[in-house]
Amino acid sequence: NKASVVANQLIPINTALTLIMMKAEVVTPMGIPAEEIPKLVGMQVNRAVPLGTTLMPDMVKNYE
């Protein structure tokens, strides 16, 4: 099973992601793959992301 990106803390709306906000975890359903973490740094979330939430592509602005 591949790990996904999971919020390590509450991430407020429009916050630019940093490494300490994210962790890799095997979850179902899968979200953004953990190997994308370096690419996510500096990208903004378009909603508040609660602690423990799996990051999905539609939660990150301009994620492709």
Score class of each variant (00 low, 15 high):
V60F: 09
V60M: 03
N1C: 03
V41C: 02
I11Q: 00
Q44G: 04
I37G: 04
P57D: 08
N8C: 03
E64M: 12
I37S: 10
M22L: 09
V5A: 10
I11Y: 01
N62Q: 13
M22D: 00
N1S: 14
D58E: 09
R47G: 10
G52Q: 08
V26T: 15
K23L: 11
L55F: 07
V41W: 05
E35Q: 12
V6Y: 04
L17E: 00
T53R: 08
A3V: 06
A7K: 01
A3C: 03
T28C: 04
N14K: 07
G42L: 08
L51S: 08
L17A: 01
N14P: 02
N1G: 08
V49N: 01
Q9P: 00
E36A: 13
G52Y: 09
V6A: 05
Q9H: 09
M30Y: 11
V49F: 02
I32Q: 01
L17Q: 00
N62I: 06
I32E: 00
M22Y: 01
T15F: 04
L10V: 15
V60K: 01
K39R: 10
L51K: 14
M30F: 14
Q44S: 15
N14Q: 14
V45A: 04
V27I: 04
K23P: 00
G31T: 01
G42H: 08
V6S: 04
N1P: 08
V45M: 08
I20A: 06
I37P: 00
I13W: 11
I20K: 04
V26M: 13
N8H: 14
S4F: 04
K61G: 14
I20P: 12
I37M: 12
G52C: 03
V26D: 13
P50V: 06
E35L: 11
V27C: 02
E25T: 09
E64I: 12
K39H: 13
M43S: 08
Y63T: 06
M30C: 03
L17P: 01
I32A: 02
A34H: 12
Q9N: 11
A24K: 05
G52I: 01
V60H: 00
V26H: 13
V49H: 02
M21D: 06
M21Y: 05
M30T: 12
M43Q: 11
E64Y: 05
S4N: 02
V26L: 12
P50L: 06
K61M: 14
N46F: 07
A7V: 15
I37R: 07
V60G: 01
A3I: 04
N46C: 02
R47V: 11
P33K: 08
P38H: 14
A7F: 01
L40M: 10
I13P: 08
L55Q: 01
T15E: 12
N8D: 15
N14E: 09
A3L: 14
A48F: 10
P33L: 12
N8A: 11
L55S: 01
V26Y: 14
V60S: 00
P57F: 13
G31K: 01
V5W: 01
P29S: 11
V49Y: 02
